[in-house]
Amino acid sequence: MKKQILFSIALFTLIFTACEKKASAKINTTNIETAKERDAKLSLGAPIIEFDQKEYDFGTVTEGEKVQGVFKVTNSGKVDLIITSVKPSCGCTTPEYTKEAIAPGATGEIKFEFNSANRVGKQNKSITVKSNAEKNTEVIRLKGTVIAKS
């Protein structure tokens, strides 16, 4: 019985010692440095997205006209802002946007074209902007009136 107890103690000691050596041998110093860099960036906070305007009023246009405009986007945060998607509320609005990272303090654009064909009356369209900003979803709007062709 004593031999079994001594054998068990020796076996557990060997296993724990072997595990400790294997675990420390697996530490990759590159991963540690990468984690430190990531943590330093996280401590700066998230990017902050700001628009020069959140509503674009195109006034009154005649049916069939195409209205073009631009929303300016500024990154007020301390890390890069990345716009991940820009989706209009309907197929009558076509957006284009800055796809590259927007550095802190820099600006980008969301351009749009609204096609007023078959859209007579008051118009209120939205564009949903998703990004890596602190508030990751924003909605910007287009409004105006389309009068029928004579």
Rank of each mutant, 00 (worst) to 15 (best):
E55M: 13
R141N: 09
V86T: 03
A101C: 08
Q53L: 07
T29M: 11
E138W: 04
I102M: 00
T128I: 14
G77F: 00
V70R: 13
I83A: 02
T74I: 05
Y97R: 04
I83D: 01
I140A: 01
K78H: 10
G105H: 04
S150T: 10
K122D: 15
E113C: 10
D57I: 03
S126H: 08
A133I: 02
S126E: 11
E65R: 12
E33M: 12
E33H: 12
K72L: 13
N75H: 05
F114K: 00
F51W: 02
T93N: 09
A46L: 14
E113T: 15
G91L: 13
A133K: 00
Y97M: 03
N115T: 11
S76K: 15
T30K: 09
V73E: 00
K135Y: 15
T84K: 14
A46R: 10
P88V: 07
E55D: 12
K125T: 08
E100N: 13
R38N: 13
K54Y: 07
S131I: 03
I27T: 12
N136G: 09
T93P: 05
R119G: 04
A133F: 01
G77R: 02
Q53F: 05
K22G: 07
T145M: 09
T145D: 08
G121V: 05
Y56T: 04
K26N: 14
F71A: 03
I82W: 09
P88M: 04
N124K: 14
V70E: 14
S116H: 00
N75K: 02
K143I: 05
K36F: 07
I32M: 11
A133V: 01
C92F: 10
F51P: 03
T137L: 05
F71K: 01
A148I: 10
G108R: 00
Q123P: 04
L81D: 00
K99C: 05
V139H: 10
V86H: 00
N124E: 13
I32C: 07
P88N: 03
T30Q: 13
N28I: 08
K36E: 15
T98W: 02
L81K: 02
I32S: 07
T98M: 09
K21R: 12
